[in-house]
Nucleic acid binder design. Structure first.
Lengths: 235, 235
DNA sequence: CAGTGGTCTAGACCACCAA
DNA sequence: TGGTGGTCTAGACCACTGG
């Protein structure tokens, strides 16, 4: 049996996206929904909580749950999402190139970033992403070998996250991200079609598994004119 | 009576921050906590849910709740937070300058951005932020006059959000944000100490009230070397 | 006033984990 | 196996909203 609250959440999401509920409409009350779906009010409340967190509705005491305008979900880089997942959702034309893949001892910087001892090894993976014919993104991944024993070019060309979650059965739980701007390096210029630009947008991510182990550090470097990060935030 | 789950949440946060619970420690079980605090297990679960959402703990079925390393206290730009609030938390040395403040009819662009009719008026507010002696941030705010009737220089020099929430009693609920990089404009160069840099980091925010009305559009323009955005994200 | 969402409770059953 | 968190229920009382 699938989780009820998740099924209801997805059901209402699809109704909002299909326009059954329009922006500024009021959803049925929690009581009504719990009757409709034949579940307890608390279960409905979990579903509505998910909707609220994800920017689909705004709840208001004494009034009800208003549907928000979700057309502004342009480019969901927010959250822990892989490049492949984003582009699939956007229906965009993209290619991935594996530029480098090797397993090496962690250098000092990586030992610090990934909390490793000097004997431990990491996979170093460099990929570039071509969108509409231009190389725009340079991804440098460092994956702790302790958690991911083997990597191949084929896997990296497809989706690292899919392999880690589906094949290895590891659970990716959360990430700390940091967005900055930096002067472009020779490496950036070597791998990317930077045109006139001399800076790049840098997204550093530390990704953690279910059991709180830090298993990956990623530096994603973007040509500035093609970079966008969107976020939905609650106060 | 304050909300119990919030009291417990804050209590555990302070214990984590004071080191009573160390990173990688296991919190007491939900059962134990509900006995300790004399509340139901569901109430404790709400508190732990908040802790998890805010990156303080990682829950794990069958094991318990692990305390995470919250060194991510770097620069919490994430969420809907005002400039003043950030800098107060960071204990930093900053100044705000009100460069321009006037109430004007919404031009075409603003009518579109803020869903306004041509008769409606908006406050245009331009502020610069000086940190450690350098003008680094240019904030351009557009506030719908329908919701905020009067603004003064004094208010804008202090905190717009504090005035709106505490004095006017409006409730700021959520925001859509978008981060991009742009070529610096003449306006940027006029207001900021840009040095050699010819680009800026741009954060566009659409901020909404409790009743889902869009009341503010902000464009925050940062000198690239001083810009950082950090985010904690769950998968 | 009746209807709404917000909080809290007590109890149940399950899946997962470690010993 | 006993303890953990995850899900779900049924019911209670509250504060807020609108007519």
């Amino acid at each position: 049996m699938q989780r009820k609250y998740n099924r209801i959440f997805l059901d209402i999401v699809s109704q909002i996206e299909q326009g059954v509920y329009q922006p500024n409409d009021l959803l049925p009350s929690e009581k009504t929904l719990s009757d409709q779906y034949q579940v307890s009010r608390d279960t409905v409340r979990k579903s509505l909580g998910l909707l609220e967190q994800n920017g689909y509705i705004q709840k208001s005491k004494g009034k009800g749950s208003f549907v928000l305008d979700t057309n502004k979900l342009d480019f969901p880089v927010s959250g822990v999402v892989s490049f492949k997942e984003i582009n699939q959702r956007m229906g965009r034309n993209f290619e991935t190139f594996v530029e480098e893949l090797k397993c090496q001892p962690a250098n000092e910087q990586l030992q610090k970033n990934l909390n490793l001892s000097s004997e431990e090894r990491v996979w170093k993976l460099i990929r570039t992403r071509k969108i509409d014919g231009e190389k725009i993104i340079l991804d440098k991944d460092y994956v702790v070998q302790k958690y991911v024993e083997t990597l191949t070019e084929v896997i990296c060309q497809d989706s690292l996250y899919q392999y880690i979650e589906n094949t290895l059965g590891l659970k990716i739980a959360y990430a700390n991200k940091e967005i900055t701007m930096q002067m472009a390096t020779d490496e950036d210029r070597h791998y990317l079609d930077l045109k006139k630009y001399d800076m790049v947008a840098v997204v550093r991510s530390y990704t953690y598994l279910d059991d709180t182990s830090l298993f990956q550090y990623t530096e994603s470097r973007h040509r500035p004119d093609k970079f966008i990060f969107v976020d939905f935030a609650r106060r």
